[in-house]
């Protein structure tokens, strides 16, 4: 059974740019999330700060008590630098997985990707299939918010990563759930109301 059988080719609405469907753009300000990362039997909790700038996105993970765990800067899909990572969590597979997952979250639909547009007849949602350095993925656009609601990254034989964005309003996700199909690696982000 093909997950994408219900897709019919479509086109972008007039004057739309694919990048405008992403949640994290240069003009969106900072986001502070409560984070919960579960890797196999290990659990990490803390705060994640996401700050988009005109040239990059910065993601910092700190503990509730203020200790910095990692600091990453993202420039484009799949391209990022690790400015700092606490020694006890500085493992190559972990950093690579976090790097790729956050890259997908930030650049769910990038302006540099090769895209095809579909309509999903089951949910009536617009679907953007995009391909770039971060791989091939399907982005489901919420008609109400005009932002990505769900992202599925596909591999050669099966789906690899699923990211769901939860919000009723277009200016920021209330929560984000990142889950892997083939490994026990899940990230849950919940927005912190600082007011």
């Amino acid at each position: 059974m093909n997950l994408f059988n219900s897709f019919t080719p479509s086109s972008l609405p007039p004057q739309s740019q694919t990048g405008s469907y992403s949640w994290f753009r240069a003009d969106t300000g900072r986001f502070l999330f409560r984070s919960s990362i579960d890797i196999y039997r290990n659990h990490f909790s803390g705060l994640i700060l996401i700050k988009p700038t005109s040239e990059s996105h910065r993601i910092l993970f700190i503990t509730e008590t203020g200790i910095k765990v990692f600091d990453m800067e993202y420039f484009s899909p799949g391209k990022y630098d690790v400015h700092y990572c606490m020694e006890s969590v500085n493992r190559k597979p972990l950093i690579k997985t976090l790097g790729n997952d956050f890259s997908l979250m930030l650049y769910s639909v990038s302006d540099n990707s090769r895209i095809k547009i579909f309509t999903d007849s089951r949910s009536a949602r617009m679907v953007i299939r995009s391909t770039d350095d971060a791989g091939k993925r399907f982005c489901f656009i919420n008609a109400k918010t005009g932002r990505v609601e769900e992202l599925v990254k596909t591999g050669l034989l099966c789906n690899k990563v699923n990211i769901r964005f939860f919000s009723d309003l277009p200016w920021g996700p209330d929560s984000i759930a990142i889950s892997h199909y083939n490994i026990k690696f899940n990230i849950r982000l919940t927005k912190i109301d600082e007011n």
Partner: peptide
């Protein structure tokens, strides 16, 4: 966070 000129209270 000095580089980002951000504070978390």
């Amino acid at each position: 966070l000095s580089v980002l000129a951000e504070k978390i209270i």
